[in-house]
Design a binder for these strands. Structure first.
Length: 276
DNA sequence: AGCCAGGGACTCC
DNA sequence: GGAGTCCATGGC
């Protein structure tokens, strides 16, 4: 995809593979707000403003434009990915619907915490809890709050997570945060998919599905296919799978290989957006 | 009131 | 290792 950087701005002319609404609302990230004229996106301590310029180009404005160049996966060619995925009717429809989806490269710690909170929860509440977490324990940066540092997270008691709305996940969070250190995070980043998966599911509150989300969104592993309630319906209705979620995931990875994660995102956005 | 949400832990067998 | 059950919370 063509783009260029000019004075704290990334300009994407003719963005056929970038739509900020698709990117934000396909369920991969929770710290954004739709300001109608633009989207505000936050990740770790950084923020960006993203908007369309007369439908002809997309502008990403940030003091940390290099961070968001990587975050939005701008060097990846989604035109190729999409052309390889249009094998079934349902994927063709899903890609046509969510043509501007990109899988963002999120901070690993933030991804782990966010997706533990996501379990058996809905996106509105997940966003609210994470926002509360940042407001209470994140450093104030200009007009917003950073995601809490690992040290700040370690100071939070279970009762305080409950107060923020985390419910029964509070104990999982405390347990996992205590177990994580910088070496644990650094080691994960150099592991292959299977090895990293085995480490992640050792964390409290991280099972099969959450681990795959962390692999996909926090570790850029695309040979995974997280199956939540929505994807379970998709696997059943469009791919004829009757098995449990873990087996659904495995057979979809077998089908799509290293493009499974992308396929999953197009399908999730299509299914969920159409039915809400 | 009861069901649902980007599921997982725990307990039984 | 599979199947059942319970788990906080808020919107509908």
């Amino acid at each position: 995809m063509d783009y260029y950087i000019d004075d704290k701005k990334i300009i994407i002319p003719n963005p056929t593979d970038f739509n900020i609404k698709h990117i934000c609302e396909c369920g991969q990230m929770f710290r954004f707000s739709d300001k109608t004229s633009h989207f505000e996106v936050m990740s770790t301590k950084f923020s960006a403003i993203v908007y369309e310029n007369d439908k002809k180009s997309v502008i990403i404005e940030s003091e940390n434009e290099k961070y968001f160049e990587k975050y939005f996966d701008l060097n990846n060619d989604y035109a190729i990915i999409k052309s390889e995925l249009i094998t079934t009717s349902i994927l063709k429809q899903a890609i046509n619907f969510g043509y501007g989806i990109r899988i963002v490269k999120q901070d690993l710690l933030e991804t782990i915490i966010s997706f533990i909170i996501s379990a058996n929860n809905n996106i509105g509440r997940i966003k609210k809890i994470i926002n509360e977490l940042c407001t209470c324990y994140g450093e104030k940066v200009e007009n917003h709050f950073a995601f809490p540092t690992l040290n700040a997270l370690k100071s939070i008691k279970a009762e305080e997570f409950v107060k923020m709305g985390a419910g029964y996940r509070a104990n999982y969070l405390v347990d996992t945060i205590n177990l994580i250190d910088e070496k644990f995070l650094a080691d994960l980043k150099i592991m292959d998919t299977k090895t990293a998966y085995e480490q992640l599911v050792k964390l409290k509150g991280v099972g099969n599905k959450v681990a795959e989300c962390i692999l996909l969104f926090g570790l850029s592993k695309t040979d995974v296919f997280p199956v939540d309630v929505w994807m379970s319906r998709v696997c059943k209705e469009y791919f004829g799978l009757q098995c449990n979620r873990k087996n659904m995931s495995q057979s979809m990875v077998k089908k799509f290989g290293s493009l499974a994660g992308y396929a999953q995102q197009y399908l999730f956005y299509y299914k969920r957006t159409k039915e809400i």
